[in-house]
Design a protein around this nucleic acid. Structure first.
Lengths: 315, 315
DNA sequence: GCTGCTCATAACTCCAGCTTATGCCCTCAT
DNA sequence: ATGAGGGCATAAGCTGGAGTTATGAGCAGC
């Protein structure tokens, strides 16, 4: 498969794993970035230069990654390095991790740069969690020098920040727009009913009715949260809580563990649905759609970086 | 914000970053896992126990993560630790990275366990890249003890493995099912035309016609690839290559850099579209849909783990 | 045959993260 | 009140991984 490299590969004791949490079985970010650079540049040394390390460091790091995974990733030759078939696959999977890390970084940086940023954003939790990092990344690609600060809170907090001129642009997910603000719909979201696989509702043949939903104890966010507001409005204030939890994550975890049905934004459960950790239960007559809106103080149309960010969120 | 912790936070020199690639700005996987455990258990010591390290190690690691990010993440108190608001957000972003890492791990492990696995899967590249890791993760959740091996290749290679009994279940994306195999459609995919933002096609008011597409030099996969087959069939074998590249990734990279329009599976460009690195160009009269199919030797209906994996891929 | 690209190996340094040992704070039950 | 126990912090010492420099070897093209 290779020329002279002698990676030795598999067999050894690489078949086993079990030991060590993820961090011991998955190469760290630096190694994954290096792998992507090698894939792109076709050379260990070139990749090393790009990352500001020396060639032997890169060589050794790739080698130890191959040992860790038990798979040969690159085909070394005296005139460059190409990915093996397995390496190409691994590189694609690695790219996913790196992209998630980039989103993390964009978000974390916005969280850190509290004041004196060129663009101050206030957003509700669901948007801050699931959408904003991607937007910030896109913004950074277009304007690398724009420092962005982020403050996450509920609709009222967002409105307050905007009106006191502590933020330039806000994002909310409520049913109504807080007074004193102009808004534009940037996306749509829908609440869906989910349960763990195996729940009786997953075997229903007819969609669930609002009455049934209202009659069943549910895992819910606390009163006052955007999610809960929409649900209560749709059911006429009748939602019966089985438990009330204060974060989307906690609700998901409870639902996954089989505690009962939950109602959540479809943004929040994409991964879980794809992986069959949760199953969506069709609804018949209830409209749980809600708009996601960008908001700003009446009159103060977004300009400069705020306008640019806004334009990124459409589509 | 806290009791006595003294994290000191921000200011220092945390506002700046720029230096160091991602790996220097994003905590490593071990730290992120630790953070998730703290969030779940509400205690540093508890999280430490779960990960098999000591309490001081956990404490110090969380602290250095806070220093790295310049944000206080957990609120320490003599009776436990809770996430701060910022911490909750960071934790959600971290979960994305960890989930990508879990998919990586599931895939890598399948790649390593070449022979003597309980379930041997052969899949075409697009499926192996984008869908299989998630399925393997779901399978592992249900049957942690099932060792899976993965071999990626084109449709012909998949068919060959199945027919020579070197694989138990296959996945292909071609237009036709190779002879000797039974199949079931498990999902649908569509090829879409994409360009970098700013390309003239992104400002079109009418959808693109097949003729226009056929008349324009495109960034394409090489002849023989599943993607190219579908495109050539849809256009009547007329696709004009601007360049031919041998991996989806290379095509994407070329398109992002503005080299020209490309035709790719929508599975492959989800991230790029969301982030506005690429823009989709609507098509008028061409049907670029294709089925993704599970395949197995005629007669040999999947049983055991193969059947279970198959059931995970539907829906 | 020389030059320039590639990669590998060896010896050494350094730091991040781990451990053990210890102490303070707070709560709860006796 | 007072101890027991859970939770966190600090200090000192160890270790391994990742980095460095220095050097050698394979292959291409002039």
């Amino acid at each position: 498969m290779s020329s002279r490299n002698g990676t030795e590969d598999g067999q050894g004791d690489a078949g086993r794993q079990a030991a060590g949490s993820l961090a011991h079985r998955v190469p760290d970010l630096g190694a994954l970035e290096l792998l992507l650079a090698v894939a792109r540049l076709g050379s260990l040394g070139g990749a090393a230069r790009e990352l500001g390390i020396t060639q032997p460091a890169a060589s050794s790091r790739i080698r130890s990654m191959e040992r860790q995974l038990g798979v040969a990733l690159v085909d070394r030759s005296p005139r460059g390095s190409r990915l093996t078939d397995a390496g190409a696959l691994v590189t694609d999977w690695a790219r996913r991790i790196v992209e998630a890390a980039e989103a993390f970084d964009a978000g974390a940086q916005a969280l850190r740069d509290r004041r004196d940023s060129r663009l101050r954003v206030a957003a509700s939790m669901t948007i801050a969690e699931y959408l904003l990092p991607g937007w910030l990344l896109a913004l950074r690609a277009q304007r690398p020098d724009t420092a962005v600060s982020l403050l996450a809170g509920n609709s009222a907090a967002v409105a307050e920040r905007l009106l006191s001129d502590e933020a330039d642009l806000g994002f909310v997910e409520g049913v109504s727009v807080p007074p004193g603000l102009d808004s534009a719909v940037i996306a749509h979201d829908r609440l869906i009913v989910v349960t763990a696989p195996g729940h009786p509702w997953t075997r229903r043949r007819r969609p669930l009715t609002a009455q049934e939903l209202a009659a069943t104890p549910l895992i819910l966010r606390e009163k006052g949260s955007g999610t809960r507001q929409v649900l209560d409005a749709a059911l006429g204030g009748l939602a019966r809580p089985l438990i009330e939890l204060s974060s989307t994550t906690a609700v998901k975890a409870a639902a996954v563990s089989g505690a009962g049905p939950a109602v959540l934004s479809e943004l929040a459960v994409g991964e879980e649905l794809a992986m069959r950790r949760l199953v969506s239960v069709p609804m018949a007559d209830v409209s749980l759609a809600r708009d996601l809106r960008a908001v700003w103080p009446t009159g103060h149309r977004p300009t400069g970086p705020a306008r640019q960010l806004l334009s990124l969120t459409r589509g």
